[in-house]
């Protein structure tokens, strides 16, 4: 009986591992193809030897149709995603604190308005926001990609609900000690909510890094495109060079995966808080 149970458990692990491998197979395929010699790209699952030629070609290639747009695109992605995410997290922590811990007249209205905005269909705002950004003269600039995405009502909501559970005594005693609101937010509230901050920041960064539609329409210059948009729009002209495309896809995907795996310790706890809302 015990033996049967052990076999069954073993089978379950085997099934879990196989399913997991199928799940991450696209990643494995992508990385292997990006490292394959060019005569083997898209022809074999596992290349006979590995080479960095696709990566080198991508960043230094003289054969490129457009001169080295990839490095610039990667930098664009970093600039846009890092500033946008920092602003979203920062503003959400401040506003969430005000809504959760500073009772003020009208606060309930602001909170309800945030809820309304969360469920309001964003698609309706796409076109007018595009026109607005164009009217500001932000077409083809970083501003267009950062400012409209500098605040997230979802993040504000997350912080508000999490901060509500922080005991009021902690804040009161900090105030008695003469701490400013600023200090309370960034020295007490945010450190107390580490796991939620990590998950919120990760989700926001990922969404920003992988945004396609918005970044596609507000930028036309190749030099201003994010890596995601560049990879999406350049594929047809790179048809003879599938290897470098896989390399670009790997460079696009790997940062997110690595950040995620680095923080995966906090993941289980944080995700439960996020899903619980």
């Amino acid at each position: 009986m015990n033996r049967r149970k052990a076999t069954f458990t073993g089978l379950k692990y085997a099934a879990a591992v196989i399913l997991l491998l199928i799940s991450i197979f696209p990643y494995i395929y992508m990385v292997l193809q990006s490292l394959a010699p060019w005569d083997q790209v898209n022809k074999v699952f596992i290349p006979s030897r590995l080479t960095l030629r696709s990566y080198i070609w991508l960043f230094t290639g003289t054969e490129a149709l457009v001169a080295k747009p990839w490095l610039r695109a990667f930098l664009n992605s970093v600039i846009v995603s890092v500033s946008s995410t920092s602003l979203m997290v920062l503003s959400a922590a401040i506003i969430g604190y005000a809504l959760a811990k500073l009772p003020f007249r009208g606060g309930a209205f602001v909170y309800n308005f945030i809820l309304f905005q969360m469920f309001y269909p964003a698609v309706i705002l796409l076109i007018p926001t595009f026109l607005l950004v164009k009217a500001f003269g932000w077409f083809n600039t970083y501003w267009a990609m950062i400012v409209p995405k500098a605040m997230s009502v979802w993040a504000i909501f997350m912080y508000t609900s999490f901060f509500k559970s922080v005991p009021q005594e902690i804040i009161d005693s900090a105030r008695v000690d003469g701490a400013s609101e600023w200090r309370i937010i960034f020295r007490i509230m945010v450190p107390l909510s580490k796991s939620i901050t990590i998950i919120v920041a990760l989700f926001l960064f990922m969404a920003r890094w992988e945004e396609l539609l918005w970044d596609l329409v507000v930028v036309q210059d190749t030099s201003m495109r994010t890596l995601n948009v560049l990879l999406a729009t350049i594929q047809s002209s790179y048809n003879p060079y599938p290897g470098p495309l896989y390399a670009a896809a790997t460079i696009l995907t790997l940062p997110i995966l690595l950040v995620f795996l680095a923080f995966s310790r906090h993941f289980s706890q944080g995700i439960r808080l996020v899903l619980g809302k």
Partner: peptide, 25 residues
């Protein structure tokens, strides 16, 4: 925890990168 993290990984993929892989396959 390990498997939760593992099975969550597809969610992190950019649709653009995945589309490239799928077209290749």
């Amino acid at each position: 925890a390990f498997f939760s993290v593992g099975f969550f990984m597809p969610y992190l993929a950019s649709g653009v990168a995945v589309a490239l892989v799928v077209r290749g396959i």
